[in-house]
Design a protein around this nucleic acid. Structure first.
Length: 109
DNA sequence: CCGGTGACTTTTG
DNA sequence: CCAAAAGCCACCG
């Protein structure tokens, strides 16, 4: 709390993602000031389930591809969650990704 | 302090 | 077009 690490920030940003919107690991990493540590963002999500309930399904890779779906348990879980929020997903890929892309740098400033 | 690790990203072959 | 490698950096033991 007094010493928020990278992970803690990642959780916070993920929870700030509005429904029906998505973002990329790199964007979050960049927002945190550590561009290039995109992998750490994904890794943080891996622990997120144990430390905090984070909508990791709103975070996808740079192509809008649901790369992390494998960690949800079922391949359809992540895709299903996004669809439930109004995000169109096809073949584990976000449709209109550019339109639904939520940039913390821009939105949160 | 050091090494392993990883849900990324980009470049090369 | 598909496959592989490297660069990247923070957390954990």
């Amino acid at each position: 709390m007094t010493d928020p690490g990278f992970f803690q920030k990642v959780y916070d940003v993920c929870r700030l993602i509005p429904e029906g919107r998505v973002t990329s690991y790199g964007a979050i990493a960049k927002y945190l000031g550590s561009a290039g540590s995109a992998r750490m963002v994904g890794w943080a999500m891996n622990s997120s389930g144990r430390m905090a309930d984070v909508p990791a399904h709103r975070v996808v890779n740079r192509n809008g591809l649901l790369t992390g779906k494998s960690h949800f348990g079922d391949s359809n879980a992540m895709q299903n969650l996004l669809k439930a929020e109004g995000v169109k997903v096809k073949d584990l890929k976000v449709q209109d990704f550019e339109k639904l892309f939520w940039d913390p740098m821009k939105e949160l400033n």
